[in-house]
Each structure stands twice: as C-alpha cells, then as structure tokens.
Design a protein around this nucleic acid. Structure first.
Length: 458
RNA sequence: GGCGACGUAGCCAAGUGGUUAAGGCGGCGGUCUGCAAAACCGCUAUUCACCGGUUCGAAUCCGGUCGUCGCCUCCA
C-alpha cells in the first residue's frame, strides 16, 4: 500500500509501526454548523479507515474537538450563553451530521477543555528544555530553536520573515513564535496554570491528545490542506521538541479543499453549504460519491449539477444491488461474473494512495455486469453481495433513501393496485394518468416483470 | 513576493513514457415496454491549455507562455 506523504512530497510504501494503525485526524471547532468542506475531509478519512480495516489492520482513530477558542468565546458572548454550552451544542450537531453521512465514530473524541493537564505538562516540558518562554500575554514557542522548522510546509523561517508584520506590543522574541498558552483576559473562561490563569493555544491540544491517546509517534495524521501551515507545522515543532522523538507522525495526509464557485468554502468567508442543508436535498451516498469520485489531494468544486450527477450515480448502484427486480425463477449465479477480478481491481487502485475515484468506477463497472446478467435472466447473487461489500468499504450503504411519505404509503399502494386493474383492462389513459399524477407529487412508478414498484423522488 | 497544486469530451473526473485515453452525469440512436421508467447495446476526446524540446515513441519527461486555485492570518 502506498500513501502520499506531505512530509516527503511523494508516495511512500505504507508500513505501520505495529498491527494497529494509529490515526489522528484534526477535528472541528464547534461554533457553527459543519459544512460540506468538513464532510469532504471526514468522509475521506472514514473511507481510509474503513479500507485499512478491510485490508486487515486494526485502526485506532482519534479526532479532537477544539471546544475552546476565540470564536467560540465571541459567539457565546453574543448569544449570552457559556462557551461550554455553545461548543456542546455544535459538537452534538456535528456527531449527528457524521452519523447521517455514515461516518464511523472515532475511537476517542478528546475535547480540548478536558485535556488541559496534558497540555500543561507539555508546555512545562518545553519551557524546561528551553523551547518555550513565558511572557505577560502567555507562553510562547521559540521557533528558532528548531532547526528543521518548516519541513512540512516546505518553507524556511527566513522566507517567512519577509511578509510578517510585527504588531505593536508584541512580546514575542521572534515574529514566527507562536502561542502555547494564552493568559486569560477578564471575563474569559480560564484554567489555572503555573503561568497564571489562561487557556490553550490552538496547536497544543493536538500534540497533547496525540501523545496521550496514540503515543509519541503515530502512523497517520490527517487534515485539510489549509492546516499544513501553521497548524501542523507547529504541532510537529512542539511535539518533537517535547518528546525528543522524530517523526511525530510518519505519514501526513492532506485532502484538497472544497471550492464553492471561485473560492474555498469556509466558515470565515461565509460561503458555505452546511451538511444538513445538503442532506435535505441529497442522500449520504450521493455526497460520498461526490467526495470520493475524485482524487483526494485535488481541490473539489461543489455545484448543484455535480451533486445531482452523484445522486443519479448512487441510484444506479442501488438499482444494481436491490433484488426486487430479480425474478424468482432466475438461475442462481451461473458464475458468469468474475467477482474476484473486480475485488482485485478495487484493492489495486485503493492500495495506490487510496484511488477512490477508480474504486468508485470499479463499482459502476460491476453494477453494469450485474444488470447485464439480470437482463439475461441470471440472478448474480455473489456479484451483488460483492458490490454491497465493496461499496461498504467506501461507506456507501446503497440502501433506498428514506421514503418521506410514510402516512401516505397505504394510499399509494391502493393507487398502484387500482392502476394495475386499469392496465389489465387496457385502460391505458387512466393508468397513465395515475402514474403522472403520482410523479407530480414525487412518487415515481416503475412497471417491472415482478409488478409495479415505486420510489420517492428526491 | 515566497511555497504548492492544477489546466484531459457539453459538465465532473481517472490515467503520468508504449495495446482501442477509465468511470459518472448529460445528449443522440436502438432493444425491452401498451406507453413510460429502470436496465441493456451503440455513438458522443485521432486527442489531453498553448509553443518549443528530449525520445524509436509523450496527455504523461524538460523549458517557456497563458490561465485557474490554495497556503503564507482563524479555517477540514
């Protein structure tokens, strides 16, 4: 298996340290609803995790929740609630979104506010070793003591100095130094520390959680490309300085960013589509096909049209696995489909840095084979089982979408029965009328050899 | 300005030195159907932004030009 490692800028053979893959993916800051950019990242890493398990690895997956930061504090103050309450609310919403997207839960979701002791331990260690220094406004990391600072984002301290503006009142020894511990301002939530009451800086939590739950060297560290600098660069600097062990993470994986129109979809720009908005119009399978239909390191542009295409594709796969359309008198599997070759192809493309786009294409090809056999009167059971199984590795359920007409179902069935009688009496006009009227209210009928089936139009 | 990514059919998107350039959506024609839908079959890029170069051979490597995007500040 090969993985593109941001650290080396090339594909490397994946060799985990042990039988259990230790994986850390940067999580959210819960101050508003999560958007499709988040969905992209977490769907991807979910697929990676599922694939590693499919290949026989045990995986320990940790994802942090940054439940204290400037934006949470600001937003909570404006709403007149506590930062804790606000963060809790959006963390719950995030979990709901993930569940709806069929993202498997992480093994641990550590929250920043619950990991303060470990952070203080690391900060103290960094101070003791001379990698950090306290000042009035907080404790800072001394970037110049790290000779290889910039190795992940491919930049040097010198090259960055040019564009840096030094703000007045800065207490930092060097403009690139970053804060580990922020001294509390009046009215802000704070925790006691040897340097006075305060709260953690942004990067320290990931180091603390990573080390605590996964050890000093982890296998895979993932996140969006927007985190490469400064977040992951600083994580490396502080973690490796603290533990004295390199590398902090053996494989750094970064997904490309979701674009909306001409720009990146992001909270700060405000041009976003939330996961729940998207789920109102599209199924989770469609969103996953949209995300996994291209190479994860490339940027992906959202549009209604592309989502619609993904939805139709999802429907096509569902059609192939469902058995309502299979006749009862069909021959069972004449072993006409070489299921193993599809499985091999799936593994081959996924082994090459998680080629999900080609994996999805493999699913479509298998679906076509299944449909072809069905048309020829063969019930390709094994192939359909394989399609479901491989789809599940990508987190696709291929289950029919929820039918939103629960109460109306008996009436729909009644209309279908009436229409059947009309068709038997060759009252085509009336029968067609029922079909088109139902279509107008979002119920699509299909007359198959086994009878009429219906589905809800999304 | 520095670092990085990218430009493949109407749209999305694989492929990164050598058989007919994956797959999805859309479109057109056909099969099936009372008609549809779904499904299947066929067609839909002699060509991979442009210009040079290397090579027996390049979408794939090198140089240049044009264009798009990201990061360098909070962000998946």
């Amino acid at each position: 298996m090969k993985i593109f490692n941001t650290l080396s800028s090339q594909k490397e053979e994946f060799l985990p340290q042990g039988s259990e893959v230790r994986m850390y993916v940067c999580g959210i800051t819960p101050y508003s609803d999560s958007h499709l950019g988040h969905a992209m990242s977490y769907v991807l890493f979910d697929a990676i995790r599922r694939y590693l398990q499919f290949r026989g690895y045990r995986v320990k997956y940790v994802q942090n929740i940054t439940d204290i930061d400037d934006k949470i504090i600001d937003r909570a103050a404006r709403l007149g609630i506590s930062a804790h309450e606000l963060a809790g609310r959006y963390t719950d919403a995030f979990f709901e979104d993930m569940k709806a997207l069929n993202v498997l839960p992480a093994d641990v979701y550590p929250r920043a506010t619950e990991e303060i002791p470990k952070m203080l331990e690391i900060i103290q260690g960094l101070v003791d070793k001379g990698y950090a220094y306290p000042a009035e406004s907080g404790v800072y990391f001394r970037v110049r003591n790290v000779p290889d600072y910039g190795k992940l984002s491919n930049r040097t301290i010198e090259s960055m100095e040019a564009g840096i503006r030094i703000e007045s009142g800065e207490e930092k020894e060097h403009p690139m130094d970053f804060v580990l511990w922020k001294a509390a301002k009046p009215g802000e939530p704070s925790w006691a520390s040897p340097w006075g009451p305060g709260r953690p800086g942004w990067h320290i939590e990931c180091s603390a959680m990573s080390v605590r739950y996964l050890g000093e060297t982890i296998d895979i560290h993932g996140g969006g490309q927007d985190l490469i600098f400064p977040h992951h660069e600083n994580e490396i600097a502080q973690s490796e300085s603290f533990t004295g062990k390199k590398p902090f993470a053996r494989y750094w994986m970064h997904n490309g960013l979701l674009q909306l129109g001409e720009e990146k979809m992001s909270k700060s720009l405000g041009n976003l589509i939330t996961i729940r908005q998207s789920l109102e119009k599209n199924t989770a399978d469609a969103i996953r096909i949209f995300v996994l239909g291209s190479y994860y390191r490339s940027p992906l542009t959202y549009s209604e049209e592309v989502m619609e295409a993904a939805e139709r594709g999802a429907e096509r796969l569902r059609q192939a696995v469902r058995d309502e359309t299979m006749g009862t008198g069909m021959e069972k599997d004449a072993a006409l489909i070489d299921v193993e070759s599809f499985r091999r192809r799936f593994i081959e493309v996924m082994d090459d840095d998680f080629g999900t786009a080609q994996a999805v294409a493999t699913l479509f090809d298998l679906a076509r084979e299944i449909n072809r056999e069905r048309d020829a009167g063969h019930n390709a059971v094994q192939a359909r089982v394989a399609l479901s199984e491989l789809a599940r590795v990508l987190g696709l359920t291929l289950k029919p979408p929820e039918r939103p007409f629960l109460v109306a179902e008996p009436f729909i069935e009644l209309l279908i029965a009436t229409r059947r009688e009309l068709r038997e009496a060759k009252q085509w006009q009336l029968a067609d009328n029922i079909r088109s009227k139902l279509a107008e209210v979002g119920v699509l009928l299909e007359d198959t050899s086994k009878g009429t089936i219906w589905k809800a139009k999304r």
